[in-house]
Design a protein around this nucleic acid. Structure first.
Length: 471
RNA sequence: GCGCCCUUCGUCUAUCGGUUAGGACGACAGCCUUUCACGUUGUAAAGACGGGUUCGACUCCCGUAGGGCGCACCA
């Protein structure tokens, strides 16, 4: 196969949502797995709704996810003149015509059809009339002369052979009365000019694919390979809403998900490679194929994402995980404050604490929370929760342990374990009973890392000795 | 209303006419264990419904129901 050219073509009217992210991932994986390239086109022809901020958010989202594109992002808006040129070529070829219907007339037409429960379509009023009939003072639009008989076939790599009766496809506007092109025209012209060979996008474009095919044919251009991917729904099966999955990818970053985990999760939504669940991005690129794409919509499942994310956190080498954590902090709640406190020494401390921390973190946010004890202001004081855990027996044991801590400014977890066990035994306590309040006192959280990890990391901080039992 | 598409455990999915319908997440139970986790073992859990075709259907066909997408001078 010659090198495929794919493209991701978001419209900058909002952030990069999860569905778009997956579409980008598929395009990227397909191109990279077949020695091709993915292009990026910003579909910003809607000047009302397009914003630069959204464009930036989309580029950042893609970058964060590690989805790289070839060359500069193409602005569709910048290519409007070329789109208009093609519209006029179509006009010259007799494949398009001027339509003088006013928006009001069209609305009336639509409402009437709706009231009579007829299909809502343009009735072709101006299809066979000439400019001589043109009413004065009305700027015409250009409509594509869509075939009225027969059917249009979209040979889709995921959906199969989709056949749509041409009578259900009306003459769509390709050039507005203000001279600006509309979406379906722009897409065809751009994909053709950019040399796109494979279009991979959401099924919501399936009907557009039929109309676009007609334009390709009218221009004698080759119709690219089409793949329409099923949509992603929210956990409740309904459309994605702000409440769940319709968040931008930056929200997933802020929630502490690793790009690699999100890639892995997204890849398994609507695509599969046998029973493989966890695979590297390299494997994804190697394995990805259009055949593996399913046809039914899938629901976004945070629990599974979390599980996967936990797996990635656990299996990322400490040094690398630390870097990821550090670059995550600016995007996290209260992350900047924590970041400001991280100097060389703290970095070393974090690295040391990471093995104990990462086993029980499903997200970087959880990592941030559980690492908080390293940043606690000294001298440490016990909160109510910790105090509540200190029954009379515990207090005695705790004091014993604290003495041990103070007596040995440099220690190892192993030495401490011996001391702890000894003091626990001498107080007739089980080790677990002693560890719980101690850890609570040191970290302020109930679900902290193993107590020996805590002691190991905090071990060299002499101010630790100033822990006070305020009860 | 019209067109197109979809329907396997709660969720993501495997199966491409013949399987005890498999895996993963989640749930539950056990083990491991200084808490919490991790790990590990096990259990429950599915072919929407009704007709065909076939020696044999989750798999092919038709219908029904349910769901999704589309039907703008938006993209």
């Amino acid at each position: 196969m010659s090198s495929p050219v794919t493209r991701f073509a978001p419209s900058p009217t909002g952030y990069l949502h999860i569905g778009g992210a997956r579409t980008a991932l598929f395009n990227w994986a397909y191109a990279n797995g077949n020695g091709g390239k993915m292009l990026l086109r910003i579909e910003d022809t809607d000047r009302e709704r397009s914003t630069d901020a959204a464009t930036v958010a989309i580029l950042e989202g893609l970058t964060w996810l590690g989805l790289t594109w070839e060359g500069e992002a193409v602005s569709q808006h910048a290519r409007m003149a070329r789109h208009a040129e093609v519209a006029h070529q179509l006009l010259a070829k007799g494949q398009a015509y001027y339509c003088y219907c006013s928006p009001a007339e069209l609305t009336a037409m639509r409402e009437k059809a709706e009231a009579e429960k007829r299909p809502i379509r343009y009735d072709g009023t101006w299809r066979n009339r000439t400019a001589a009939d043109a009413p004065a003072g009305i700027k015409p639009v250009i409509r594509f002369k869509s075939p009225q008989e027969g059917e249009t076939v979209v040979d889709d790599q995921a959906q199969g052979r989709v056949v749509i009766p041409n009578k259900d496809l009306d003459d769509l506007i390709i050039l507005r009365s203000d001279g600006n092109p509309t979406y379906n025209l722009s897409v065809v012209v751009d994909d053709h000019d950019m040399g796109v060979t494979h279009i991979i996008r959401g099924v919501d474009h399936l009907t557009n694919a039929a109309r676009q095919s007609q334009i390709y044919l009218a221009m004698d251009w080759t119709v690219p390979s089409m793949t329409h991917v099923p949509l992603i729904h929210g956990p409740d099966g309904a459309k994605l809403s702000k409440r769940h999955g319709a968040l931008g990818v930056e929200a997933y970053r802020a929630m502490g998900y690793l790009p690699a985990a999100l890639r892995n999760y997204l890849a398994r939504l609507g695509w599969s490679h046998g029973d493989d669940e966890i695979f590297s991005t390299e494997e994804l690129v190697r394995w990805f194929d259009l055949d593996g794409i399913g046809k039914s919509a899938s629901r976004f499942d945070f629990a599974k994402l979390e599980n996967l994310n936990g797996h990635y956190i656990r299996h990322t080498p400490d040094a690398e995980l630390l870097e990821q954590f550090l670059s995550f902090l600016p995007h996290a709640e209260n992350g900047s404050a924590m970041l400001a406190k991280i100097d060389g020494g703290m970095k070393a401390k974090l690295l040391k604490a990471l093995p104990g921390l990462k086993d029980r973190a499903k997200t970087l946010v959880e990592l941030q929370t559980s690492a908080a004890y390293l940043f606690a202001a000294r001298p440490l004081t016990m909160d109510d929760k910790a105090k509540a855990l200190l029954n009379d027996e515990g207090k005695v044991a705790l004091k014993t342990v604290l003495e041990v801590l103070m007596a040995s400014p440099v220690w190892t977890a192993h030495a401490l374990e011996i001391n702890l066990k000894a003091s626990a035994e001498s107080n007739g306590l089980k080790l677990g009973k002693l560890a719980q309040p101690l850890r609570a006192a040191l970290t302020g959280t109930a679900t902290s890392p193993p107590i020996f990890d805590v002691l190991e990391v905090l071990g060299r901080d002499e101010s630790l000795g100033r822990i006070k039992d305020q009860s």
